[in-house]
Write a protein that binds this DNA or RNA. Structure first.
Lengths: 218, 218
DNA sequence: TTTTAAGGTGACCACCTGGTCACATTATGG
DNA sequence: CCATAATGTGACCAGGTGGTCACCTTAAAA
């Protein structure tokens, strides 16, 4: 049985919480700006003003530090999903989709660096356990929309000739791109989502949802 | 006026065409696998079995080599777009969209490494002139769909309350994600586009186009 | 106060990077 | 056959990387 290097060393948890948070913040900032490969341990300790040896007393290596950061990210996602689900009881399928999109926007606003890290992981390679990490996040989407979609189909809210897999794919594609465009302005093809007022943004979202509704309903 | 380092040195074009192609191929492979930053000049010359000094006689630096590679990519894209436009005279808006999607699939099949490079450029930073390069490619999409969309709207094929920018955004999002899922299987959420037979793939495409049609038509 | 353990440090290591340059090799043309 | 120019070469450079470890400081226990 090999050692796994996934978790911080015990010394990390002995640190006063404020210091733990500082370290996490510095690592998050570095990984968000540089991605995994280009992120530099030297740069992280420089940000923190601590010695490199110290950091290696908290984490076995760069990979363990990164995995810890990503763990915190998925924790936040889980939280947000739970909150969103709780708040939107009783909505129909497309209103739920709308809520999911809004929740995504909120997440980006609140944790822009985590979202940057996620985007980098999506398209970088040689990120340790990339597929597992990506899957871990996407699962939220699949697990959320999958059953909802089955239900919606039974209730006749979706065209019967559309497979649920395709519906989920289309929803996921649209929502994901919307969020990516929001976070990376050069992806939005002149739509200007990033600089938009909250009201205009909501209006655009409503239009998108309407298009989806018309496209997917019987 | 600074020097620009964009083009290969004249020595490169003095090389026998076969050698030029070898060099290009090695560079393409390396950039496709590693992205810009992680791509290693050492690795490229190792692939080629030539001395590093030689490569630096053909190109001023890594950046110039990369820009040359990307130039070749945009040339191919331009070609493909032209071909696709020529072949699909007389189709309506949504059939043209279908053609564009098929053309994209063909491109990925024919030049998978170029597409990988493009995806990497999209999400890597500190790629030299990234925004310019991305814009250069996306312009094809905007210039292609923009006017088409205006026309379709005048002809009453699109809901009047949808702005052309939003329509282009939605088309672009769906098509782009479809292509990304095709090239990067872990993005397709279990749809399994990558391993699909050409017929099943076309069937999925037709379904997607139908959804778009229902969503966007009056 | 002394002993012992934990936490903190930064010089150092091997390795890799993009880029250079004095030199060797080859081709050209007089 | 020689002179000249063009092409090819790889040891070398400065600078960066992730990671180590003998040493120092601090704090708690005895």
């Amino acid at each position: 049985m090999e050692k796994c290097f996934t978790e911080p060393k015990p010394t990390f948890f002995n640190l006063p919480p404020e210091k733990q948070e500082n370290i996490l913040a510095a690592a998050v900032a570095e990984f968000a700006e540089q991605g995994y490969q280009r992120a530099s341990v030297n740069s992280i300790v420089r940000r923190l003003g601590i010695a490199k040896g110290s950091l290696y007393q908290y984490f076995d290596n760069k990979e363990a530090l990164f995995l810890h950061v990503f763990d915190q990210f998925t924790r936040k996602v889980k939280q947000q999903v739970k909150k969103s689900v709780a708040e939107s009881q009783g909505h129909d399928f497309f209103l739920l989709t709308r809520e999911a999109l809004l929740a995504g926007i909120d997440f980006i606003v609140e944790y822009p660096e985590f979202f940057q890290i996620y985007l980098k992981v999506l398209f970088e390679q040689d990120v340790p356990r990339r597929e597992e990490l990506v899957a871990r996040v996407r699962l939220f989407s699949l697990e959320y929309f999958g059953p909802l979609c089955e239900l919606a189909k039974e209730q006749g809210m979706l065209r019967q000739d559309l497979s649920c897999r395709l519906v989920v794919f289309l929803l996921d594609a649209t929502l994901d791109r919307f969020l990516q465009a929001y976070a990376q302005p050069y992806l939005d093809g002149g739509l200007g989502l990033a600089g938009m007022s909250r009201e205009r943004l909501h209006a655009e979202i409503d239009t998108v949802i309407t298009v989806l509704r018309n496209g997917l309903q019987p």
